[in-house]
Amino acid sequence: MIETTINIILFVMLVVTALAIIRMDKLFAVVMLSGVFSFLSALLFIVMDAVDVAFTEAAVGAGITTVLMLGTIALTARTQKKSPKFQLMPVLIIIIIGVALIYGTMDMPNFGDLNSPANTHVAAYYVSNSATDIGVPNMVTGILASYRGFDTLGEVAVVFTAGVGVLVLLSGLARRRREDKEEL
């Protein structure tokens, strides 16, 4: 009962934040509100007992992303461009996609459903055997670092590649500009 109440309150706050973001013109406030949005999602993850995910969401979504977005709007513009007039096409597209998404969720299993595909395959094995196989109390760490260690190696490689990509894109541009200036 109390969990449902908390869920409802958090979801209402999420929707209110999203509506506020849509109505804002100042991008600084939009970035701050998206940080609030991330924190609210983190709270929702905590209610769903996904503490590790909540941790990541709070640190990356609310912390890092906010700083990077601030850096971006410092490079570009601080206020949103006014859209000229009401346009029908975008509204139609959004409504169609929204209805399709809601229709898609009808087929999804309920939250915490024992018979859902996620809970019927290897998850049962992990839950019953990780204490003897690995002996680590935090099962999430056991799965990520040991059972699925090779996957996690791939993920680390992805993070590394993303970092290298950003560096090549941003620093490459700075160097080109400097060379252009020297030519002038």
Partner: peptide
């Protein structure tokens, strides 16, 4: 290993963004 890579990548990305601002 994961922690070292992630902290390095995120600080690098921050430097890359902030140096241009």
């Amino acid at each position: 290993g994961v922690g070292v890579t992630v902290s390095g990548v995120i600080v690098s990305i921050y430097y890359a963004f902030a140096s241009r601002t």
